[in-house]
Structure formats: C-alpha cells, structure tokens
Amino acid sequence: MPPVIDTEKCIGCGLCAEICPMMVFRHKPEESDTPQVLYGDECWHCNACVLDCSQGAIRLRLPLPYMILNTDAANLKG
C-alpha cells in the first residue's frame, strides 16, 4: 500500500509520521527505528512523505485501481 519505506535508507527520524496529513504511519522508536505503515489504505497520495524525507527513503506504490487511463494521442481521429 502506498508509502513504502526503504529500511536501509531510513534513519528513523519519524518526520514522515509527524507530517502525514492522513496519519498513516506509526512511529514508536522504542519498538522500531523505521516507522510502520499502519494505515496504508488511508494514503491520499499527496507525496508529502516522499518530498520531505531527507534520505529519499520513501516511495509511493499506487494501488492498481488508481491507474491513469491513457492512449496514443495519434489515435484520436475519425
């Protein structure tokens, strides 16, 4: 589900959990350095976590239903 954290790159700062508008992460340093993606299906794909992660450790995996429908523009003719 949307945010995917690269545990190799994550430094456990918890910024993603702090700023996510949907609060999809849970960060409990005493349990795990890397925040958990606990409510991934509530992601709004706003990309705030991706943009703000100083380590570039987060990417979004968009669910299959979110596909952007597209076609070759040259096909738009009678």
């Binding site: 706003c46 990309n47 991706v50 952007i68 597209n70 076609t71 070759d72």
Partner: peptide, 19 residues
Amino acid sequence: TALLDYLDEKKIDPGKRAV
C-alpha cells in the same frame, strides 16, 4: 508530484499520450 512520479514510472508521456 505523486502524479508526475507515476507518469514517469509508467512512461506515460503527456506530449504523446492522451489521458
């Protein structure tokens, strides 16, 4: 930016592909 990342990842070039 999530939209742009997705377009890039799926190689959907808006200059060539109608959405």
